[in-house]
Structures are given as C-alpha cells and as structure tokens.
Amino acid sequence: MKTVRISLIGFGAVGQGVASTVLSKRDFLKKQGIDLRFVGITDSKGSEVDENGIDLEAAISRKKDTGSVATGDMTALEIIRNVKHEIMVDVTPTNIDDGEPGLGNMLSAFGAGRHVVTSNKGPLALRFSELNEAAEDNGLFFRYEATVAGAVPIFNLVHEALAGNTVTGIEGILNGTCNYILTRMTEERMPYKLALKEAQELGFAETDPTYDVGGIDAALKLVIIANSIFGTGATYHDVDVTGITKITPEALELASNNNSVIKLVCEAVNGTLKVAPRLVPKRHPLAVGGTLNVASIQTDLAGRITISGKGAGSIETASSILSDIIYIARHV
C-alpha cells in the first residue's frame, strides 16, 4: 500500500466534494494500492492538521455544523511549508486580479517539494509559465484538469491519450452559465435578462454575472488551454473577447429557422485566441445544450476528437481532481 499525504487548501463546495469523493472511493483506492491521507485542511476561518490523517467524515460534518473545518489556526502557507506531505490540492476561489491566494499557495508548494493539483483558474490564467517552470525546476507534477470544463478531461486527453499528435486547433464551449442562458433563450424564446435571472435563481449564475456572460471566464479557460497545449505563453489580454449580453431572442430564432444555434464559442486556431458568440449548425458536435461543456480538438494524426460533459458541480469537479491525484499517486 502506497501512502500519499495531501493538504487540501480550501474547503468550500469543491473542497468538500473532493473529501466526500475520496471517502466514497475508499475501497476502490485500496484495490489500487493507494492510501490517500489528508494531513491538513484549511478554509477561510482556520485549519485542521493531523499528520496521522484527518477523519474526513468528521471534517465534513463539522464544516456543515459550524461553518468551518477549523480546529486550529495554522495558515495554509504554514501547512504547505511545514507539514510533511506529497500533494497540495488548491481549491481556493479564482481571483483574476492577482491570482491570490492560489498563486502563493502553488509557488510555496513547489518550493517545499509538493506536487500541485488545482481547480483554481486565476493563477494559471495569469502566470502559467512561471508555475510550470517552478514545477519542472523542482521535478514536481503540476496537474490542473479541473480548471477547464469541470469533469471533461481535456488535458488528460491531449497530453496522455493523444500523445504524439500535434494539435492544430481547439474549439469549445467552456462556460456552462452562458450555454444555459443561450439554450433557455432558444427553447423558450426568453429575453436575455429573464434567462439570466432564471440561471441566477437556479444557482448557475453569480449575482454579478459579468464574469460569465462577459466571456471572461471562458477566456481564462482558453488561456489555460493555449498555454498547456500550445505553450504560447498567452495571457488574458491576448484573447479577443465578446460576451453574450447583446444576443436577442430574434437572433436565436433566425438562427434556428436556418438549422443553427448561437453558442459562446472559444477558439484557439492559427495562434489566435477568440471567445465570441458563433453560429453552430444544430447537428454539429459543438451544439450541446443546457450547462454542458464541450471541446473539439483538431489533431494531425487522430483527426477531430470531440468530448462533452458537465462543466461544473462539486462532484464533477472533484472527479477531475481525484483523477489528477491518482495520476500523481501512481507516478511517485
């Protein structure tokens, strides 16, 4: 049995999803010969640290009962630097201004010799090259499947399954909120504002929706794709971004009359990065509905490969995080 010690930095919806997923997969992991031991968990109020392994069930119920996992006040950085472990899992909220606290957590983890698994887009969209170099310089794994398209394994697919292929272009729908709004506008002939309100009531959209409907979230994901797959060193400012706020029900109807739908499409082709509403034929593989995400990858050997699935949700995101953790556990 291989014991892999983990610090879980952030214990919101995704962090708790990771904990409960690891609990539910305990037998499976045992069969794989992997013992995942959580030695530190933090949230905004404090932390729990136990070098012999935290009782995840107790941690989840304490969080539910008291609003915090905290039993002590060791900070995330103190845990990352001073508590012995192999993998730091950063699931802190995305911050696109300076990437903190995720950026500091990740750089500290690499400095302390920890592999990093994350769902946090901010640091990768802002400083991908720096993070990647820090991982490489220290001979550590840097895995971030959960940052783009939730459960859909885009990076695993390209780097592992399609290894040897040259990717010539990627198109995708990477923001579930926009896709939901456009789908509802099409199906119910709803005006944009009403569809947005419905998305907010269902918890698919934030109170301030700009980040999603302005195309910013999709652009950040496209930047991560461009860096990871094309190694372009692109940042958010290199993306030509148009959101969905100006889309009218009439435009969707005109599209529909001509067997098309309008989708917020991310595109990385010929060195240009673009997020914009686009016409997609109804029967095209990119024309997925609801909150689904999709990525269509054009390669030289395999041709075009398209995958779609759930782009959000705590368990779906935890699926990608667990996959990254298992990958590292198998390779260390």
Partner: peptide, 14 residues
C-alpha cells in the same frame, strides 16, 4: 453591430 459568424466547418472531421 454585433456580427455573429459561423464556426469553421471546413477544418475537417465533423
């Protein structure tokens, strides 16, 4: 004006 273009269809495989 917001111009909505069709996705590239001629890049093969679809």
């Amino acid at each position: 004006l917001l111009l909505i273009e069709t996705i590239r269809l001629n890049s093969g495989g679809t």
